[in-house]
Nucleic acid binder design. Structure first.
Ligand SMILES: [Zn+2]
Ligand SMILES: [Zn+2]
Ligand SMILES: [Zn+2]
Ligand SMILES: [Zn+2]
Lengths: 162, 162
DNA sequence: GTCACAACTGTTATATTATAACATTACGTG
DNA sequence: CACGTAATGTTATAATATAACAGTTGTGAC
């Protein structure tokens, strides 16, 4: 089950609940430990569809208790990345929730709105195929791929600040 | 004229010379000033097909005279990026020479070998088209795109360290 | 239950990448 | 050469990320 598009009106609480359920079940299935910090970091990331920086997460954690040191957050992020529950956006140095943590990640691509800062994770078999074919042509064995498209989402087009 | 593929044997001195000629003519045409620092930074980046970090460039500059402060290098990098003479690889926090500085850059994609660290800039109209079509479908106006494929190049496949 | 081990978290310090702000120098034009 | 602008120098600091080691907690064997 996919979460909703950030660029369309939706009940975002559903996204959050779905993400947490997915995380619980994935961790249970794989014997991962979804500890308090890890879960809290995941929740903070899912509070919106905007990508969140590690230090912004730190700030938030500080607001609700004792502010931990950076390694605490980075370790939680590493775990969530490994588990496939979040992604890192290299162009933003920030992290966003994975909207389909069960699938393989042979290709996931990101639309990043520079106005509202929302991020949509996209799957597209057309692009997958072109990348495979490119890699084959060049004799290149791809192990990681990152496609980040920055621009203006449909909501922000035509609006005052666009 | 394109430079050679980093993954094929070639006379790399040709790449360097070509890159410098391209830079000279592009700057002359546009009235940009290819100053000593800027030119030296470009040369250092073109010394290989590996992406070079800002502080690695600083070190090199230090070896051949007085080591400048970071802003000097970052300003040169900003200029070269603006001029379209180099690209930044977000997944590496590093910079690589543009292999075709005359063309538009509506799509350039990078193959990054994790073994030899060489980087190849690729143009692929198939991917261009899939991205356009994706953007159209999602009503998303793309202003910047970055595709970075990490993996193993043809030379490094099958070799001992692969 | 409790022992032992591994996994997780805390803590301190520091590495790496990048920019802000202001002073000085070099360049090109008239 | 005088002027204004663009480029560079300089100092300080911001933002992102990791190393190293100490302490704590959870889990399974017995
Ligand atoms: Zn949502
Ligand atoms: Zn938007
Ligand atoms: Zn070459
Ligand atoms: Zn290689």
């Amino acid at each position: 089950m996919r979460t909703n598009s950030p660029f369309k009106h939706h009940q975002h609480s559903q996204c959050i609940q779905q993400a947490l359920r997915n995380a619980e079940s994935l961790c249970k299935k794989n014997g991962f430990r979804l500890t308090r910090v890890r879960k809290r970091v995941l929740e903070l990331i899912w509070k919106s569809h905007q990508a969140l920086g590690a230090y912004a997460i730190l700030e938030q954690l500080g607001l609700e208790g004792v502010k931990p040191a950076p390694p605490t957050v980075y370790r939680a992020l590493d775990f969530l990345l490994e588990a496939g529950l979040i992604h890192r956006l290299n162009s933003l140095n920030a992290y966003t929730g994975c909207s389909h943590p069960k699938d393989d990640h042979h290709g996931s691509y990101f639309l990043i709105c520079q106005h509202c800062r929302n991020v949509a994770e996209i799957h597209d078999t057309g692009i997958d195929q072109q990348i495979s074919s490119l890699a084959h042509r060049e004799n290149f064995a791809v192990s990681e791929q990152a496609l980040e498209l920055s621009g203006t989402c449909q909501n922000c087009q035509g609006s005052a600040h666009a």
